[in-house]
């Protein structure tokens, strides 16, 4: 089996860093940024492929937090807080840049950014990626933007459906729908997924009598 790198479970430590940096601890601030920068950067790629814009957005976010440090509230959910804040900033920035009025669907405007640029224009740290992972990346990038976002929050950051619903400001059931639709699409797109189709068919067939029994 492939080695899997678990997401570090450092949320309690993060809450501690958060409190220390609110009291002017510069090292705590740097450490907090270090622990969540990668997550935020990767999350932002679901909104725009412009990596310079992303970097500036995240710099602005952290500097804003630093300026406002004494007025920030205590929160046990630092990660979700950061994700929400970055999401707001990104949507605002992309909206300003496209000079759209409020009537235009924001998600649609983000799709414009995503679709105009091919996957190849994105920085790809491909040497560390397997062929499978590259195919998965491409398949994900072909999903509608909001499905990409759900897939990211679920499989990159490991958020629960409830947390995802909170971040994206949608119903929990909508999150579940997005997840099922995205997984179905990925299954259709991915050869590595298809390899196990015989297994699935087999399991599906074998589960029929099981269903009946349990009824």
């Amino acid at each position: 089996m492939k080695k899997s790198t678990p997401i570090p479970v450092d949320e309690p430590l993060l809450a501690d860093l958060w409190n220390r940096f609110r009291e002017n601890d510069e090292q705590a601030f740097d450490e907090l940024a270090r622990r969540r920068y990668r997550l935020l950067f990767n999350y932002a790629t679901r909104f725009t492929k412009d990596t310079e814009l992303i970097k500036d957005c995240i710099q602005d976010l952290f500097l804003e937090l630093w300026y406002r440090r004494t007025r920030l509230a205590d929160t046990p959910y630092v990660t979700v807080y950061l994700i929400c804040a970055l999401r707001n900033n990104l949507l605002r920035k992309l909206k300003v840049n496209t000079r759209l009025d409020d009537s235009v669907d924001l998600a649609a405007s983000c799709d414009v950014f995503t679709d105009n640029l091919t996957v190849e224009t994105m920085l790809i740290s491909s040497e560390s990626m397997s062929q499978n992972e590259r195919e998965i990346r491409n398949a994900i990038n072909r999903l509608p933007r909001r499905q990409q976002e759900v897939i990211f929050l679920k499989f990159y950051e490991g958020l629960s459906n409830e947390e995802i619903a909170k971040v994206m400001d949608i119903e929990k059931q909508t999150v579940a729908n997005f997840i099922y639709r995205a997984i179905n699409q990925l299954k259709n797109d991915l050869p590595s997924f298809s390899q196990i189709i015989p297994q699935i068919i087999f399991l599906f067939l074998s589960s029929q009598p099981f269903d009946l029994q349990s009824c």
């Binding site: 492939k2 790198t5 990767n42 994105m122 990626m129 990346r137 499989f155 990159y156 990925l186």
Partner: peptide
């Protein structure tokens, strides 16, 4: 793999 594929 889905986790790793989303690191840019």
């Amino acid at each position: 793999e889905i986790h790793h594929a989303q690191n840019y």
